[in-house]
Design a protein around this nucleic acid. Structure first.
Lengths: 204, 204
DNA sequence: TACAATTGTGAACATGGTGTTCATAATATA
DNA sequence: TATATTATGAACACCATGTTCACAATTGTA
């Protein structure tokens, strides 16, 4: 009945484990962090870790999802048209958030973060894009010219790929610039950027 | 002086190690393969492995690069316009190659393939895209509307992301369809696919 | 063919993280 | 206060890694 309130110790333990992991990642990278590092930093027994999480990756993903859920909620407070009207894309907040935690995501997204973290982050973005686009398509009564799965996955991988590159390159460009670049690519595709002018929309 | 011909034993050993690794990846996944598995399968001493490679990843990347170099050479035999004239993108061969070795790339690209493999593959694609685009831009005397690094990285991550998704989804679509999807996105961007019609190219 | 250099071998070893068990202690909730 | 839940830490088995070393096998060449 009251599944609602987990034991105080549980909350405390999990929070400490999460905080310890993120701070350790900043200190020594992802792979280098051992379970014992985490529990020691958190002042907990190593056994306790396995009482709550299967492995490092599960711990990290739960932390990330909490943060992402917040971010998505913020983004969805505005409609797509609202964002565009302000000369921004909905993903502006994503670029901002990434910049604010640059070193952290640099490590996580470098791909040398455990097995499937980048992939799981990408899945999260794709799922978000999918529901957002679906909802919008319903509002407009419009139909997609591509399978939603293809589209959402394309968006997720290109956005995440660009963010990862941007962080690795020590942020050669500002958030506003990245936002603008991504909008151009989103609006007109890569062809125009290369200077390749399509045959004026021929064979749709 | 004659750096040219490595000892026959070296060639033989390296080839056997490469073949063993790829076959083992198909058999039990990437992570599950140990150095000992590889050398045993290759009928070599475990020590021998370290005589040639630092770790599993180095071995795998060298195998991949050999394959990729071939593929790129094939692709570059035609000009971009040639490809387009035939109703295809240069990346058609990439989709084909991926389909032919579906299970292999499914594992490699799932992200659960060692630390940075997907990332290194993506870097390879980005580098290829960069030189290709640069060359073409020089031919046309055109200038890019985006930094080449941004562009090439966007292309690489979206292409690889799409391929990875496609393989994971058990290839719900044909090579020709994927090629067409990617071309649509390349030519017109994602916005049009959503049914979002831009303000007729307003404020460039 | 014989010889010197290179390469492969296998055993042995140290290292280090993982994941599990279990009896016991600490703490929360009712 | 009583009972259930959670945390503890020591101990253990396990397994892959990476390195060393003395010796064997093979190769390219003189």
């Amino acid at each position: 009945m009251n599944q609602r309130k987990p034991d105080r110790r549980v909350q405390r333990t999990r929070r400490q484990l999460q905080e310890s992991l993120t701070s350790l990642i900043l200190a020594k990278g992802y792979d280098a962090v051992t379970i014992e590092d985490i529990t020691e930093q958190a002042n907990l027994g190593r056994t306790t870790f396995y009482l709550h999480y299967k492995d490092k990756e599960e711990l990290l993903m739960q932390s990330l999802e909490a943060v992402f859920d917040d971010l998505v909620a913020q983004i969805q407070q505005r409609s797509i048209d609202d964002w565009v009207a302000h000369g921004q894309g909905p993903w502006t907040l994503a670029f901002e958030h990434a910049a604010e935690n640059a070193r952290f995501y640099q490590i996580i997204l470098s791909g040398q973060g455990g097995d499937g973290i980048k992939r799981r982050v990408q899945n999260y973005i794709a799922a978000t894009a999918k529901t957002t686009i679906t909802r919008r398509a319903e509002e407009l009564g419009a139909s997609l010219s591509l399978p939603i799965e293809v589209l959402s996955n394309y968006i997720a991988s290109s956005l995440l790929g660009l963010i990862a590159w941007w962080l690795e390159s020590e942020q050669t460009y500002t958030v506003a610039q990245m936002d603008d670049f991504f909008r151009q690519l989103t609006m007109h595709g890569t062809a125009r950027a290369i200077g390749f002018v399509p045959l004026t929309g021929g064979e749709d």
